[in-house]
């Protein structure tokens, strides 16, 4: 990765690595909104500006990237976290759209396509993995719509906000499948 890789640009958004100054009350507000964190790991802990700064710092730009999603006007609306298993050239990608006014606008489909282009192209990853709670139907929709392969279901792997055990659904995208998809003219 080089600085010149960023921002990744899509039709409506720009993506760039977050820095400490991006830990704002606006961002913290997302993590304190149960609707936003309902399906995220951050639902389990107490979040502060300090924990956000630590989370940003835990992505070192080599084995982990935290890319903020910004509107063309510069409004921060969400993040992608990419953790990389370098020996195997496999990434694990998570996403949060914190700004509720951007829900239902296909932000993930649009921006994740740019992240996959970059991850398979510039980073040379062989595969990217993703996962979501089984009850997170919008996430399942996004994976299916984008052609990710269902690779299995971890039964009762997580605890939801009500304390019930729930399944976690695993998805994968191979570089070869993504390139085929792009070659067929699919934009997302």
């Amino acid at each position: 990765m080089t600085v010149s890789d960023f921002p990744l640009r899509t039709a409506h958004y720009d993506l760039r690595p977050l820095v400490s100054a991006d830990a704002t009350p606006h961002y913290l507000g997302w993590l304190n909104d149960p609707e936003v964190t309902r399906y995220l790991e951050s639902r389990h802990g107490k979040n502060t500006l300090e924990t956000i700064r630590a989370y940003i710092a835990s992505h070192d730009g080599t084995s982990g990237y935290l890319l903020g999603i910004f509107t063309k006007a510069g409004e921060h609306v969400g993040n992608f976290s990419l953790r990389i298993d370098k020996p195997n050239a496999v990434g694990t990608l998570g996403v949060m759209i914190g700004e509720r006014s951007h829900w239902g606008r296909q932000v993930i489909l649009e921006t994740r396509a740019a992240v996959l282009d970059w991850a398979f192209g510039r980073l040379g990853l062989h595969k990217v993995c993703g996962a979501c709670l089984a009850a997170n139907l919008p996430a399942i929709y996004n994976y299916r719509r984008q052609g990710w392969r269902h690779e299995g279901t971890r039964r009762e792997q997580a605890v939801d906000e009500g304390g019930s055990r729930v399944d976690v659904v695993m998805f994968g995208m191979l570089a070869s499948d993504w390139h085929k998809r792009r070659g067929a003219g699919r934009s997302a």
Partner: peptide, 17 residues
């Protein structure tokens, strides 16, 4: 299909389920 029907969006998917 979910990939070729333009109207098949995430909110519609919830309604389908």
């Amino acid at each position: 299909s979910i990939e070729n029907l333009a109207a098949w969006d995430s909110l519609g998917h919830l309604r389908v389920i």
